[in-house]
Amino acid sequence: MKDRIELVASGFGGQGVVRLGQILGEAGVKQGLRVTMLKSHGTEMRGGYVRSQVVLAKKVVDSPICESPDYLIALSSAAYNRFKHTVADNGLIIYDPDFVEEVDNTLTCSQKALPAKKLAMDNFGKPLFSNSVVLGAIAKLLEEEGAVNKEVLLESLLAIIPKFKEENKQAFELGYKSI
């Protein structure tokens, strides 16, 4: 992997964006990487904007801020519009088309739609599992980078969210295959 990978996940409060960052970070630690994960939110209330900034690095992380993320996971149009311009030229935006309706085609980075909410609804009848879908997709990307193994990420997911293990595992696999 390269020296430093920046990943930003952002969406509404209550979507599990912080949990997503935590699971990814935990997997990074298990993988022997140095990790920081910042959560920021405008308000204490649910429904506000929430952002997780994850840095995975080979050496001690200096700045924990994702100035030009390699990956942006946009789970709301507000998040998409707010952070799309920060993404590195060779970076990737993954957005959920259920939340991000208007895609900006002028951006220089790559963009991929991941219908996480739809996949979760179609397969489990609950939007709850869309986060695991997203994590599965991230697993695929980070595995390609040689940063984090799929198994390690899944293990972290199941350790941090001990409920509905089977569904989360299936949702994770769905995400892994869909990107």
């Binding site: 960052g21 935590q22 990790v35 920081t36 910042l38 959560k39 924990p64």
Partner: peptide, 9 residues
């Protein structure tokens, strides 16, 4: 806030 609320290895 970044130190206390931030996550780190």
């Amino acid at each position: 806030q970044l130190i206390t609320d931030g996550w780190e290895d």
